[in-house]
Design a protein around this nucleic acid. Structure first.
Lengths: 171, 171
DNA sequence: TTACTCATGTAACAAGTTACATGATTTA
DNA sequence: TAAATCATGTAACTTGTTACATGAGTAA
């Protein structure tokens, strides 16, 4: 069994040509989906665990920095496939800061609600535009993720507009 | 600043009449959004922190179990409002097991894709039906969350159907 | 009186964060 | 040669998990 971070690391190494821990960290830091900060304290220990479990193979390069060139073993590929096709985990709801807060907004007064709805709309639309721009020069793995992130934001935009009309109707 | 768990705890105590740590844990365990397991090891320390920071007030009841009746202080209410209206956090993408895996499914062969898409559809639809059923006897706070969770699952269902037709078209 | 529920909490562990520390290689 | 980038890692801390431990109140 792989954790979400371990799965993400195997994707970077096995599918997206990030063959060093450093490049994996870089990919995480550059990704707009804020799943992981790509901190050294999480990535290096996770990669060590994956090596110990035989999912990653290392080919030490000859450079003086001790760069480790990482590749997926057969067991690593199998583990990644099993992880990515686990139906139960895939359809689980997950953590969503928007959903967690949405129930509270009805406790504000009408003016606060209207201005908050407005601020949320602006921010969500900005995020969509940022994601569309970022999507341009990404590989297919990242592209699929970005498209899904955009659809999530669009869902939020629709929800906010619907909420606005409910507020407007005085419900 | 509150963490996601601390915000969720203040909602339970301040808005949903879960006035003991035990009832908060119970609410988390019963909630179908698997954000938190409601483990004692997270809830009790978090509540202790919230008391220390002056966000929660305790009224010890006279029973022999040492039940602590918890309520939000004024500072607690303010902190909860600030937490719930933080726009940046609210529109952040968050962690989604579906999105994280979706990019990988294109590396499988056609037959594997079709059977996996099918399994995902069944599971997602089941989740929607479970959520609808659970929604019946919930308060407005939980209802809003459940509705958003349902809309997320419906988005996934549409995405899967779209993916199926792309597979079918041999792209 | 036995079993279930209500209620609190700790201990060992897992896995993330930031900040720190080091050094090689490349580019201006 | 100075600065930026590539590359590795550790240390202290935070916060979550499961499992364990305890005991009071209630209903069969």
């Amino acid at each position: 069994m792989l954790t979400e971070l371990e799965g993400a690391i195997l994707i970077e190494i096995g599918c997206r040509d990030r063959h060093t821990a450093f490049k994996v960290r870089q990919a995480f830091r550059e990704s707009p989906s804020s799943d992981w900060q790509g901190s050294a304290g999480s990535v290096y220990p996770a990669i060590r665990r994956l090596i110990e479990r035989g999912f990653l193979e290392t080919a030490a390069t000859t450079d003086g920095r001790g760069t480790q060139h990482l590749t997926l073993s057969t067991a690593g590929r199998e583990a990644l496939l099993a992880w990515s096709t686990n139906v139960e985990t895939t359809v689980s709801i997950g953590m969503d800061p928007f959903r967690l807060r949405a129930g509270l907004w009805d406790t504000m007064n009408r003016d606060e609600q209207l201005s908050h709805a407005d601020a949320l709309l602006v921010a969500a639309k900005q995020t969509i535009s940022d994601l569309r721009h970022y999507k341009q020069d990404q590989d297919k793995f990242e592209t699929v993720q970005i498209e899904l992130a955009i659809e999530l934001q669009q869902l939020r935009v629709r929800w906010i507009k619907n909420w606005q009309s409910r507020i407007g109707a005085g419900l």
